[in-house]
Design a protein around this nucleic acid. Structure first.
Lengths: 344, 344
DNA sequence: TTGTATGCGTTATCAT
DNA sequence: ATGATAACGCATACAA
């Protein structure tokens, strides 16, 4: 009983048909009774189900896909599944996909152009029914080339991306940075504010910096170039910036930091050097990662909602999968929230 | 030029063949020249490649899969991709898969039995070439039923799982807890040690508790039942335990905590109540999550290496995919490391 | 070296 | 209500 049937080939519809004493297409009809236009007698329906049970028959998804040109699969490309910003996105997409009975193929691009192109290649070769991307290096023209070869919908995360037939989900981080900087000025009374950014190559880089600058200008302040710095996304990068500031012997009264990891690195390093947060320097991060509630003082930060981003992406995609007539680009904004804690 | 070819059907080998003036199988041969047994003239090889270029031909993976019974896809089931323990595993598996030119289908089980079974169902229906699982509710017998229907290899994470033909990768958390508890006793001089565990349903629950108890016994100590508690994996769960301990008005001098999130919750709540860590209570966690370096005092913890677990799982699987003659169960241990920081 | 014929397991279009 | 038959796109055994 441990090995009910020999590990031969898996049973097919033919096997079921033979056992049930019907033809193979009839088995198909019984099993896909969603098609109500066809009537099937209770008798055969019963016999088929019996045979299915007896053989432990399972439909072969591949054969079905070849025939129907649908795979019940979507593809998702993110930068890195083990990054705290991306994995809630992936999780949300998977959850929505499960509701639609779809599987998800996930690929990490690591911001590498070749990987991003390879992903599109896979999408075409494997005939998935739709794709969600977070393109960093890929341009609208790149995607256009791939899209010209297929009918399937693409949906993208990121305001910076433009293609006339690709839905975009985004978070307005320029405005988030703008409003938060103004908040530092009007609500917290800061007049000397620094900004620690991320490299310009990454889409959020220039946008967040722009929001920061606009806020200063609109409030009649000017940016001190010594306090406009850039680092690499990591806690260690934040520490390096801290040391740099400390060596300059002059420090702004507040710092907008373009991501939480750097912000936390800054806090820890500044504290090690004897500074008090937020008395000596107020610090605002960006992302609201789990560590933000653990660091002391707890980190004031701009919360994106990656789970929401993922849900919006998936919903947009499935809407298009189910309504191929949709073509015009649609824009979906995901909100942000300033989480005021104790670091600013 | 923006739409080089009309979005008709994608070109097939037939189209390539026609354009190149050869037969379709010849195209197939040219494109899969791995088969060195067949010689092809430079002339046709050239013409075929020309035609491929001209048409923008891409092989149809589905059709190939139907024919070859291989999908170049593996499936991975974890509890939750957005859990810090699992996503490095997923990342590692994906990285190895990329080396083999495989795609990865990822599914979240959330410890739900139905999801775990559904995953196996998907594995069979979609004909993936292998599967990696972290089974929580699934038993060896369950898996045996599925395995009897297929030839593909399964590889599993977790010591608790047994099936004669399934490789297991594990981390010996019983020993880890045992040795760390002994370390608290012999190196740190504690004699009154509490243990905060996770529910017994989860495989690590009983194992870690057992390691703890063994250590006490081997050192001639006895466990105080008031200090053997259990909570739910979260920081909030840790806080609740802290309040419970505080209300008891008596607290052990050290606490082994079965995961970092709870340990951090404990630290923060105890500090809020005026306790000093590690002077009043030493605390050791389990997992070495990123937050462990951010909390003050930094958390002493038992580091698993999920990336390594993922790599071992993937390597085991691909070894089996490439050597189907392998059958006997193999065991792979992933090491752990006590990371001594400042909380104990 | 290349072409013909066949089949992988379905779904879909005809008949009946 | 059901059965033949074809087709999806490819790889392979066999023939030439």
């Amino acid at each position: 009983m441990k090995q009910p049937k020999l590990k031969g080939k898996a049973p097919t519809m033919h096997d079921v048909a033979r056992l049930a004493g019907v033809s193979q297409p009839t088995v198909s009809r019984v099993l896909n009774q969603n098609d109500t236009s066809v009537q099937i007698s209770e008798e055969t329906r019963y016999r088929v189900h019996q045979a299915v049970e007896a053989l432990g028959y399972r439909p072969n998804v591949i054969a079905r896909s070849l025939r129907t040109q649908r795979t019940q699969t979507i593809a998702l490309m993110i930068a890195d599944i083990s990054n705290a910003f991306y994995h809630p996105i992936a999780r949300a997409v998977q959850d929505i996909a499960r509701q639609f009975d779809y599987e998800v193929l996930i690929s990490n691009s690591d911001h590498v152009y070749e990987h991003e192109k390879h992903f599109c290649e896979i999408v075409l070769r494997r005939g998935v029914d739709g794709a969600i991307l977070v393109p960093i290096r890929l341009t609208g023209d790149d995607l256009d080339e791939y899209m010209s070869q297929t009918h399937i919908p693409f949906v993208v995360l990121g305001h910076h991306f433009y293609h006339p037939h690709v839905d975009v989900v985004y978070m307005d981080d320029e405005r988030a940075t703008y409003e938060t900087t103004r908040w530092l000025i009007s609500e917290r009374g800061h007049t000397c504010i620094g900004y620690i950014g991320v490299p310009d190559i990454l889409p959020p880089g220039p946008r967040r910096l722009r929001g920061f600058h606009r806020a200063l200008v609109d409030c009649g302040l000017t940016a001190d170039p010594r306090f406009i710095l850039e680092s690499d996304f990591t806690m260690e990068g934040g520490r390096r910036i801290a040391h740099q500031l400390i060596q300059q012997r002059e420090i702004p009264s507040a710092l907008m930091v373009a991501n939480d990891l750097m912000a936390i690195g800054l806090i820890l390093a500044l504290q090690d050097a004897g500074y008090h947060i937020p008395e000596d320097v107020a610090i605002v991060g960006f992302d609201n990662i789990p560590e933000a509630t653990v660091v002391r003082p707890t980190l004031t930060t701009i919360a994106q909602n990656p789970r929401d981003l993922g849900e919006k992406l998936a919903h947009a995609l499935f809407e298009r999968i189910e309504n191929p007539e949709l073509t015009e680009r649609r824009l979906f904004e995901s909100s942000y929230q300033l989480i005021v804690r104790n670091s600013a």
